[in-house]
Write a protein that binds this DNA or RNA. Structure first.
Length: 268
DNA sequence: TCTTTATGGCGAT
DNA sequence: TCGCCCTAAAGAT
């Protein structure tokens, strides 16, 4: 269930549980057996995220993990139980274990290869070294829709389908507007909002985007939590009433991903 | 016991 | 734009 905020949490969690001490590394499923053997018994020295990429630093190299659409970590207290299902990677020390299932990527990289991954990513709103100007330069010149641009990891790293839908709603921007038709002021508000929303998402571990004045409580409706565990305006709310104006929220496949928007609040 | 779905991304066409 | 890869859980039959 990974957008960028989750990866930053995972970096912190791995650092907290395994940082600075030797880790038993294995691949119960077998698909990462060779890499696991190289890392087994080494201390975890560093952990960081960039966009949706997670990097765990060991003396033998950087373990590069990308969760893809449905990869995920589970953590628990030692002793680790018998692996359940397809456990690609297992990290264990005296106190804790972590299981990784279903990642798109789980590989060992050299420092140069890791640099190459960073180089092909746009600025990540959750990183202090992010330069939003790099993203703006590309958006301002692009004929692609802002919906497609926000999801393009070369333009902006870490934003996924939920944050895309929600940040466009919050700024009443139609997903179908071309990047080059956005004003600089609109972009600056969107970027600033992403920084704030994703920081909060990283802090609490779920995506909440509904402003206090639009919560069900404030609107006099019964409380509600969406499927993904947070409160959102439009993501996966197709056919239901917009929390602001009551218009039916729409959905449509756009570049192979489901897009959600309010046709009244977000006019072209 | 199936089929579908998912907060991603890649390569082929 | 399409098919495909990774996996588990929910929904349909």
């Amino acid at each position: 269930m990974p957008e960028g905020h989750i990866l930053h949490r995972l970096a912190a969690e791995n650092r907290r549980l395994f940082g600075g001490r030797p880790v038993d590394v294995s691949s119960p499923q077998g698909r990462f057996a060779d890499g696991a053997k190289l890392l087994d018994g080494q201390p975890l020295e560093q952990a960081e995220a960039d966009g949706k990429h997670l990097f765990l630093g060991f003396p033998a190299g950087w373990l590069h993990i990308h969760l893809g659409l449905y990869g995920g970590f589970t953590f628990g207290a030692a002793p680790a139980p018998e692996p359940v299902g397809m456990v690609r990677l297992r990290l264990v020390n005296d106190d804790h274990y972590a299981d990784l299932r279903g990642p798109t990527t789980c590989e060992l990289l050299t420092p140069a290869e890791k640099d190459a991954v960073h180089a092909r990513l746009g600025p990540d709103p959750l990183r202090t070294d992010a330069d939003p100007e790099r993203a703006w330069q590309r958006i301002a010149r692009s004929r692609s829709t802002i919906a497609a641009l926000l999801m393009d990891q070369k333009i902006l790293a870490g934003v996924g389908n939920v944050y895309r839908a929600e940040v466009l709603f919050r700024h009443t921007v139609s997903p179908f507007r071309a990047g080059r038709d956005l004003t600089r002021a609109e972009w600056e508000l969107i970027w600033g909002d992403l920084v704030e929303l994703m920081r909060q998402g990283a802090a609490i571990g779920r995506i909440d985007t509904v402003r206090p004045d639009h919560t069900p409580e404030a609107m006099g409706r019964p409380p509600r939590v969406d499927d993904h565990g947070g409160e959102v305006y439009v993501y996966r709310r197709a056919g239901r009433a917009c929390l602001v104006c009551g218009t039916e929220v729409r959905t449509e496949a756009h570049a192979a991903r489901n897009l959600f928007w309010c046709p009244n609040c977000q006019q072209r």
